[in-house]
């Protein structure tokens, strides 16, 4: 390969041939890389899709009207997930109600109000660390603080608060990203017309950031729906054969919050409970619950991805 200073013809020919060889070799390695990349992706995705397909094949046949409207039972063929999906929805409502306003407020503060300094630095490191704290640690926090410290019991409210804290970093980060993407001129125009800071936030920043915030909130909620560990840690029962009182009733004052202080179970807990049993019939129930759970989380995420996709297209146009 080396060029010699004498520059005779044969060595020049040699180096050309070498160069062609090197290029061909590089092209071959390139192909190996590209094929390897695709292969790894196909293997990983293929494995996952095979597993999900297996779950659907085993579980889908078990899902019928009775399965969705029955309480858990000692007999596998009679058991259903009524208390579990009602519990999941009520816990989700509580989580959304707590985490979204607080998360959006915190994100707004960090992006629009906070001056660069040690305090905002600490909060930033802190949020990024919280996003990586294992979910079971949130369970221990809730057990020590809410269940034993504040004596709130093992209720829907406690589960909602626990999962709310868990998804707070997700909501904060997505709010910050959404706010950061808003063109400065909108803000400056509003300030120029004499709006104060809160007016700018309320009338311009929050509406403009809404799709991004929504995406983050949905992703957070879909994570919360699938969380099992923190709910087990606060000691949620797994055998619940009753429903909490309905939140809406025909009598005055039409809405009540008694359900917040009720015991509950949720879909992932029910699934975990059935997986842990030795009988194969219960494993079919577990697969069916898994299908319901996956349908919920995947459709939530699908919605979030769709919103973001539309948002990006609008930005481009």
């Amino acid at each position: 390969m080396a060029f010699t200073s004498s520059g005779n013809l044969s060595s020049a020919e040699m180096s050309t041939r070498d160069a062609i060889g090197a290029v061909n070799r590089a092209k071959r390695i390139d192909k190996i890389f590209a094929v390897g990349g695709i292969l790894v992706m196909v293997i990983a995705m293929g494995l996952l899709f095979a597993l999900i397909g297996d779950l659907v094949v085993r579980g889908l046949g078990r899902i019928d009207y009775d399965f969705l409207t029955s309480f858990p039972s000692r007999r596998a063929e009679r058991a259903g997930i009524l208390s579990a999906w009602v519990g999941s929805i009520l816990v989700m409502l509580t989580t959304a109600f707590l985490a979204i306003p607080v998360g959006v407020a915190a994100g707004l503060y960090l992006e629009e109000y906070a001056r660069k300094g040690w305090l905002s630095n600490i909060i930033e490191i802190n949020v990024s660390n919280l996003a990586g704290v294992p979910s079971i640690i949130y369970g221990l926090l809730a057990l020590g603080l809410f269940v034993y410290g504040l004596d709130l019991g093992k209720t829907i409210l406690v589960a909602g608060m626990t999962l709310g804290l868990l998804i707070l970093p997700i909501v904060i980060v997505s709010t910050r990203e959404a706010v950061r993407a808003i063109p400065r001129v909108i803000k400056e125009g509003a300030y120029g017309l004499g709006a104060d800071q809160w007016q700018v936030m309320w009338h311009y920043i929050i509406p403009a950031a809404r799709p991004g915030i929504l995406t983050g909130a949905i992703v957070g909620l879909s994570r919360a729906i699938g969380e099992t560990a923190p709910i087990i840690t606060i000691g949620a029962l797994t055998f619940i054969a009753f429903l909490p009182p309905a939140p809406v009733s025909g009598d005055f004052p039409f809405i009540n919050f008694d359900w917040l202080t009720d015991g509950f179970t949720v879909l992932p807990i029910q699934m975990f409970n059935w997986i842990s049993r030795p009988q194969a019939d219960f494993h079919v129930n577990a697969a069916a619950t898994g299908v319901v759970l996956m349908a919920l989380t995947l459709s939530l995420n699908g919605i979030a991805i769709w919103i973001r996709y539309r948002l990006r297209r609008e930005h481009h146009n």
Partner: peptide, 29 residues
Amino acid sequence: SRVMSVLLFLCAALSVFVTTAIVVILVSE
């Protein structure tokens, strides 16, 4: 505007409180 900026700050500070609470609960228990 003042009240809201304080409120937003408290929400952001909540995240620091959560970390502190985790440490306090784990250590004290």
